[in-house]
Design a protein around this nucleic acid. Sequence first.
DNA 1: CTCGTTGCTACATTTAATGTAGCGCCACGC
DNA 2: GCGTGGCGCTACATTAAATGTAGCAACGAG
Lengths: 111, 111
Amino acid sequence: MAKQAPTAKPGVRGSRSGRPIMALLDLLGRRWTLRIIWELREGALTSRALRTACDEASPTILQTRLTELREAGFVELTDDGYGLTALGRELFQTFTPLSRFAERWSKQGGS
Amino acid sequence: MAKQAPTAKPGVRGSRSGRPIMALLDLLGRRWTLRIIWELREGALTSRALRTACDEASPTILQTRLTELREAGFVELTDDGYGLTALGRELFQTFTPLSRFAERWSKQGGS
DNA sequence: CTCGTTGCTACATTTAATGTAGCGCCACGC
DNA sequence: GCGTGGCGCTACATTAAATGTAGCAACGAG
């Protein structure tokens, strides 16, 4: 499996177009990925604290996502635990508007 | 299955905190969801055109995501096919910075 | 009627995620 | 020294989600 374009980042699907946004969309579109970045927004967490923050998600998948995010350069493991890199913080900034949007969304009828 | 807080939107996991961002993060963190919104950015697509745009993803999951997105109020089915609602376009706007970020990301070493 | 399209569904297979347990490692208290 | 308890991380059986293929009913054009 694992269709990859030669120009794309390894381990990231949907990158054949060469459009980096596709690779990013794919990476972020995996379960817990967005959540992990969100939970690390205020500082580093140990793997176990992160697990608690992520509603006791299985360590298996957390570890998988953490590895992917480290390979992507968004997360790093420091003495304080897992934390966002400078790049990761930049990424987080990009979905700050999302937070404001979510507030509005919850007020207008979605379903 | 389907843990739902009474205050949260139906069909959206991780909403027990009552924080709408969690519900949104969960919804967007399902496979193809981000991609679908992205592909509809320039206008409505028929279900089959969307399938083509989404790299021949299975109609099963596309239909599932489309239904979720319609229930969330981000997508609607018009005469031209599936298109973003006003709310959906707002949502898309929020991850426009993501696109610019993706460009930068692809240039600095990720892995 | 037939052909081609639409949105949508059934179902068997494959893949991803879950839940639980436990590893090796290192710092502590005793 | 020797347990205790934390850390990051992994194994593995179970369950849930996604895939791939096929095909449905409905509408319009020829």
